[in-house]
Write a protein that binds this DNA or RNA. Sequence first.
DNA 1: TTGATTGCAAATAGTTTGCAAGCTC
DNA 2: GAGCTTGCAAACTATTTGCAATCAA
Lengths: 148, 148
Amino acid sequence: MTDTYGNMHRRLTDYMRDHGLKLTRQREEILSRFVELGKHVTVEELLHAVRQVSPGVGHATIYRTMKLFVDSGVASERHFLNGPACYEPGEHHEDHHDHLICTACRTIVEFENDAIEQLQNEVATQHGFELKHHKMELYGLCPACRGA
Amino acid sequence: MTDTYGNMHRRLTDYMRDHGLKLTRQREEILSRFVELGKHVTVEELLHAVRQVSPGVGHATIYRTMKLFVDSGVASERHFLNGPACYEPGEHHEDHHDHLICTACRTIVEFENDAIEQLQNEVATQHGFELKHHKMELYGLCPACRGA
DNA sequence: TTGATTGCAAATAGTTTGCAAGCTC
DNA sequence: GAGCTTGCAAACTATTTGCAATCAA
């Protein structure tokens, strides 16, 4: 299941229909900007982008809408470097990628590693846990910042 | 290097001497309570414990002191479940343990896994990163909460 | 029309900071 | 005595919530 605008819009409208919620101008607008901005968007960035088109939108609306997006599986929330939350397309529990983060320039690179996932499951099982999801972030210097 | 009170106290006083800082009653007190309380202590918990002995201490002092502890390598800071920061003895970059966290009762179990560490290093190298440290949290249900 | 949604402002949680008074070296 | 520290209050950042007005179905 790819995260195209069409798929996400459908997932969102399905979710709203099933929960008696309404498709508003703001929600449509926020979804467009969210998809446009791509990965790792903060509420502030999203608000800025949305206000270029609809100046009146309040930040509470972005917060509420992003929560709705997360609940409907259209977005997932991440927290890096104890900064503000940022969002990326797709469901947290569906995708299995982690992040490499440059501590100097804050560049974020995504990666996937099945062997690590496998070991994580083993660790959880060893401790009697039923694993739901995980969070793994590797911090270091990216190639550019190592050279500098 | 074990994290006994004596070692930590020495590390802290060395750091303070080298930086022209002063050993105050509050700092001594906070270090004792910190060691006493053990792992994963929040500022609020620490403040409560310290005030049992020294009622006048303000929370700003705890925040400032914990920052000092982190800088001197006596404590390291963690962030779980986007809650408040919590602290544990020892330097972040020195130890190599990660956490299993119960999403129901917030129990925290520590573990270490060299194979995962190894793979993390490989991933970083593949992307040209120089790995400094990492953060890995596995979320799920602990044995007790699975039964419930 | 009905009830979900919005924007605003105020509230909240966690943390930091300015400043006068106090304490350590 | 010099200057680091403290406690308090105020500021700040990220986020949530109450509420009257507005809008979607």
